[in-house]
């Protein structure tokens, strides 16, 4: 039931974030007031259907603007969502995460991701989101939105493809950069079919930030050690390859609740409740 509820929330978040679906036919970009706000998940604001701004795109847009250096507004929104929900944002609210989960349902042999690859997203965050937009500038002194420009597959999927399909004039500027970004998108799509949430775990800078905040977020996973029988079912079912019993604060846990649903003793809870914390405080 909880898993079904998560699917409904993911679907609702996907629809809410991309509510301007009628624009897909014309290739127009929504210019309403909602674009002043950032959605919590990765969703390209150049997608005709997008209602909100992308937080990573917004951070880079401000950092790349002369005299600004850092996007405080978007960073504040990311921190606010992160401290409240941690990586539950990835598990429930991110449209691109939902897209990857659907891809992973395609029946093919599944593989386990090589663990060191998961650290790549911290490099992407530091270099492509924070450092390069500040340091690489063009002739006009405008910085480079390096993550959007060279990596983000959401921009290719949600922005370029619908726009190229509906606006013939844009097809004239397709070049090597688009070819590179299309290649990344293909890699991410194939990766997501084989590995659960390939992009989230390897490349997503938002996932990196929310993952760092997982340790202290209000929405969290707790394991009642008195009930746990160490059967290992939670670890076995986790798509993110987390062992909830030993790593309940793991930066990779997206709070999807699969482990809690699989636990035969109901020892795992994922919520805002601090009952176990309070009990631990009393024991201390």
């Amino acid at each position: 039931m909880k898993i079904f509820r998560r699917r409904l929330i993911q679907l609702a978040a996907f629809g809410f974030t991309n509510a301007q679906v009628l624009n897909l036919a014309s290739g127009k970009i929504y210019k309403g007031e909602l674009k002043n706000f950032c959605a919590p998940g990765l969703n390209c604001y150049s997608c005709p259907a997008a209602s909100f701004s992308c937080p990573i795109g917004a951070m880079q847009a401000v950092a790349a603007t002369s005299g600004f250096n850092f996007g405080f507004y978007a960073a504040g929104i990311i921190l606010a969502f992160g401290i409240l929900f941690g990586r539950a944002v990835c598990g429930f609210l991110c449209p691109f995460g939902f897209f990857q989960e659907l891809l992973h349902k395609i029946p093919t042999p599944k593989k386990i991701l090589w663990r060191p690859l998961m650290y790549a997203k911290y490099f992407v965050l530091a270099v492509f989101v924070l450092i390069l937009p500040l340091t690489l500038t063009n002739y006009a002194g405008v910085g480079l939105p390096a993550f959007c420009q060279y990596i983000c597959p959401a921009g290719t999927l949600e922005g370029s493809l619908p726009l190229l399909a509906t606006r013939p004039e844009l097809r004239q500027v397709v070049g090597s950069l688009f070819a590179w970004k299309f290649f990344i998108l293909v890699v991410v799509i194939f990766g997501s079919v084989i590995f659960y949430r390939f992009f989230c775990r390897v490349l997503c800078p938002l996932g990196a930030i929310y993952g760092l905040l997982n340790r202290i977020s209000f929405y969290r996973l707790t394991v009642d050690e008195n009930l746990c029988i160490n059967c290992g079912r939670c670890k076995k079912i986790c798509g993110m390859n987390v062992d909830p019993v030993r790593q309940n604060d793991s930066a990779e846990c997206i709070r999807c609740g699969e482990c809690a649903a699989a636990c035969p003793k109901k020892a795992i809870a994922i919520n805002f409740s601090t009952s176990l914390e309070k009990r631990d405080d009393c024991l201390e």
Binding site: I29, Y30, K31, K35, N36, C38, C44, Y45, S46, A50, S53, C54, G57, A58, A61, V62, T65, F68, G71, F72, Y73, A74, A75, G76, I77, L79, A80, L144, P145, C148, Q149, C152, G155, T156, G159, S160, L163, L170, V173, V174, G175, L177, F178, W180, K181, F182
Partner: peptide, 30 residues
């Protein structure tokens, strides 16, 4: 503090300008 600071120094307008147009770099066409 970040949100307040960002709003007061006009970041929302920059984001809106970027988000209300096609960002050619973002979609790999720029």
């Amino acid at each position: 503090g970040f949100i307040f600071h960002g709003v007061t120094r006009g970041e929302v307008a920059i984001i809106f300008q970027k988000a209300a147009r096609i960002c050619m770099e973002c979609i790999g066409l720029g």
